[in-house]
């Protein structure tokens, strides 16, 4: 038996082509009393059934981008200082907090890295999945419960009915991540942000969860923004790839052309640092480390670690499409001409 989620777009008159549009997003964070741009001028769109992978190492701004989209930046230390974020036709940057609250969990869902700690340990699973239905859709407890069983079957939790009243500690990591997915999808959102959804799981479970996400995405027409540092995961599920470094998008490309021809020196270095079975050469680590925000060089932020550095790198390169493939854009003075 297959179960289809409610796929009708909430605003049927003019369904926006893109479920998620981010234009010129700049997010600042406060360090020792000063504001620094930790995400600079990031733009992208994700359409229904599409998966955009946001790739980069820790601190590159990928999680901050996600928090900005969700409107969950801690106000004391983070703010969206420029740009527009449109989720399912609603401008999140212009909306007030109650409006954003109504969007979260309803039209846009998020799953997190740590399934072991992202569930409330003292509340039963069934209630936790039902809660957003009760909150956003005003379902009665009994109706919500019925829907919860359907959702648990949808994410392939066996013996769903018996497990409604089980607590998180009775579930394994993989099962908990399925519960998180069920929670995020309960209200049939149009956009799902998956922040390192499989990083904390065993490799075999990773594959299961990724396959599940891909399946659900096709069924429901979900737009997925996948945040990860695992290029293996990117290769298996992404349609498009965006590489971030120091808050800048340094390369944006369709998945295949990215893996075939990584163009930015940082992307290249990332791929060379990844173990591959078809290559006998030693892994090449990227020398040095990401400068902290106060120490970021002016111009290209990768210049301090870049083997191709030229004088022009002191100026910030633009993100330009490549002549050979307009879908493939890169932010590099040296490589952009190619």
């Amino acid at each position: 038996m297959t179960f289809a989620l409610d796929t009708a777009a909430p605003n049927a008159e003019a369904p926006p082509a893109n479920a998620l549009t981010v234009e010129g997003l700049t997010t600042s964070i406060r360090i020792a009393g000063r504001w620094f741009d930790a995400v600079r001028d990031v733009s992208f769109t994700v359409g229904p059934r599409e998966t955009l992978a946001l790739v980069g190492e820790s601190g590159c701004g990928k999680s901050l981008t996600a928090l900005s989209i969700m409107g969950l930046l801690p106000a004391a230390v983070g703010r969206v200082s420029a740009g527009r974020i449109v989720v399912d036709g609603v401008d999140m940057t212009a909306a007030d907090e109650p409006a954003r609250e109504a969007m979260r969990g309803d039209r846009i869902g998020m799953i997190f890295q740590e399934p072991m700690t992202s569930l409330n340990p003292v509340l039963p699973i069934g209630f936790q999945i039902a809660e957003s239905l009760i909150q956003h859709r005003g379902l009665s407890k009994r109706d919500a419960r019925k829907r919860v069983v359907e959702l648990m079957e949808l994410v392939r939790i066996p013996a769903a009915e018996e497990r409604l009243d089980a607590y998180p500690h009775q579930f394994s990591g993989g099962m908990r991540q399925r519960v998180m997915i069920a929670m995020a999808l309960a209200c049939s959102p149009r956009v799902l942000i998956a922040d390192e959804p499989t990083t904390a799981l065993d490799v075999t479970i990773q594959a299961q969860v990724l396959a599940l996400l891909a399946d659900l995405q096709k069924q429901v027409g979900l737009a997925v923004l996948l945040i990860t540092h695992n290029l293996g995961v990117v290769a298996s599920v992404a349609d498009r790839v965006m590489v971030m470094y120091g808050g800048d998008v340094v390369e944006s490309a369709p998945m295949r052309s990215f893996f075939k021809a990584p163009t930015h020196p940082y992307s290249e270095a990332l791929l060379n640092a990844m173990p591959r079975v078809d290559r006998a050469t030693a892994l090449a680590p990227i020398p040095g480390q990401v400068p902290t925000l106060p120490d970021m060089p002016a111009g290209c932020r990768f210049q301090s670690r870049c083997p191709l550095r030229v004088d022009k790198c002191a100026e910030r390169p633009p993100l330009v499409p490549m002549a050979s493939d307009p879908a493939h854009a890169v932010r590099c003075w040296v490589r952009a001409g190619a």
Binding site: M70, E101, G109, M110, F112, E114, E131, M183, A184
Partner: peptide, 19 residues
């Protein structure tokens, strides 16, 4: 983390605090 998860599900402060 589960408090962040609650926020991501659009729950209000009262619900997060007391539930």
């Amino acid at each position: 983390d589960f408090v962040d998860a609650c926020r991501a599900l659009g729950y209000g402060d009262l619900r997060i605090m007391f539930l």
